[in-house]
Design a protein around this nucleic acid. Structure first.
Lengths: 249, 249
DNA sequence: GGGGTGCCTTGACCCAGATCAACAGGTAAA
DNA sequence: TTTACCTGTTGATCTGGGTCAAGGCACCCC
């Protein structure tokens, strides 16, 4: 008997871009239809704000396509990105109605949303949803901690290299780039300013360090946004991490 | 009917310093005894390492008393603290045997440990454990993201003020200090070097900024480790945060 | 074409915090 | 009592990255 397996993962089987396999020996099979029942889609354009910190958030959901950011802003305007949301990432916090961060689309964005109340009720009755969300949240926590090392202890050059390594690895693992360890190429989904907000730098420093990595042959730029990395290992060597390439996101 | 409520919370009822109320309408009442069965205690001295990053971790557990840190170290010695573990905090990741971070006792430390395999099996059969852990993990994620703002965008003075505010609030909420908004006092559980590793600074900068806050009357030191904050609001004003005092940990 | 506007780059200069260094308790062992 | 060690403080100097400023390029609209 298959286990219940709710994956917040994008794929492309016909009309439903999210796979919700809800088949369980013990649980009721019509959990599946209940999930279908409470879900709807929303689309956003680049730069559009999905939700402002503090707003009431009547849904939870996952990214189907595109890239969004989670960020915090101090009243004097300093902002720090605290999450980078890519397809299959979960948005929102079960059990809390108010958004804690600004969520902003950085590309065209599609989200699959579930109405909060019924989703939370379903979590009560379908234990594997909580178990799945726990694993996803633990992954996010690992990514946040990796990020803390980047923010607290790395030089500007190492920060840029780390970000490129993370984005490159993410793309590669989605099968959009080549094999890791060799040449990879990917599109930067972020502006220089967004990269700066990610890394705790200014956009000028980002620009300078990207130029420096280019001059040193670590990366090549095709246009402003397309990055080619001749040797992923050489890029990893610039991150300051030990060689296991342990960067997480 | 009471709900199953497994809290990883320290209290002081006789021999068992952890409260595991396991009473549930649907679940079996003897889950309680199963938890008792697989648990044991470990004690550590200040400076002692609980576990090294990469080591096999055959237990999960929670802090009963004392303070521990979660940290990452780069091979050239730069280290960043990524978690501060206080009583009731959970240690370890269900589903992963290898430790991802160094865990170090900074004071006398007592942990309540559960053997990994039986605990994970119990998670499968007792759904509310996963739900409780999900909430705790989401709290940790919020704390990590607050911390990212501190690391990425705050000045040294704001960083120190933020750390003191967090420690002070934590102590106050545990009933060890006075009411928030007014004078509070607490012991610093961290050395200057640990504070530096927490905040992405050097210990010299920490020392200077602590002295500066003292000179400006924001804090008073009684010895090196006892901190008295005449006005918690004045301290919050130094953190750079908006006035809701939203610092999380 | 001309003039916005958004995004990026590069240069010149400055400063917050790192680095290097000396020293001051406190305490613990010899 | 002396020596050693650990933690913390303070001073002097240096520097990585911030700040301010001036363009460059691509694209869009009039």
């Amino acid at each position: 008997m298959a286990v219940l397996d709710i994956q917040f993962t994008s794929h492309d089987c016909g009309s439903c871009p999210i796979r919700h396999r809800a088949v369980c020996a013990r649980c009721d099979d019509d959990e599946l239809s209940r999930l279908e029942e409470i879900k709807y889609y929303r689309s956003f354009e680049p730069g559009q704000t999905v939700i402002w910190s503090g707003d009431q958030m009547d849904f939870l959901g996952s990214i189907v396509s595109g890239v969004a950011t989670l960020s915090q802003t101090m009243e004097d305007g300093r902002t720090q990105m605290v999450g980078l949301l890519l397809p299959s990432d979960f948005v929102g916090r079960p059990g809390r109605g108010a958004a804690a961060y600004d969520v902003t689309a950085v590309t065209d964005l599609t989200m699959c949303c579930f109405r909060r109340k019924p989703f939370e009720q379903m979590m009560e009755t379908t234990p594997h949803i909580a178990q799945r969300l726990l694993q996803m949240t633990l992954d996010e926590l690992d990514a946040a901690r990796e990020w803390m090392l980047i923010l607290g202890r790395k030089t500007a050059r190492e920060k840029i290299a780390s970000l490129l390594a993370i984005l490159g690895r993410r793309d590669a693992s989605l099968g959009l780039g080549g094999p890791v360890g060799d040449e990879i190429a990917f599109d930067l989904p972020l502006t220089r300013e967004a990269m700066a907000d990610y890394l705790g730098l200014t956009l000028e420093t980002v620009s300078r360090q990207v130029s420096a990595l280019k001059k040193d042959g670590i990366i090549a730029l095709e246009g402003k946004r397309r990055v080619r990395v001749p040797s992923y290992d050489a890029l990893l060597a610039e991150t300051g991490d030990d060689s296991d390439g342990g960067a997480l996101i």
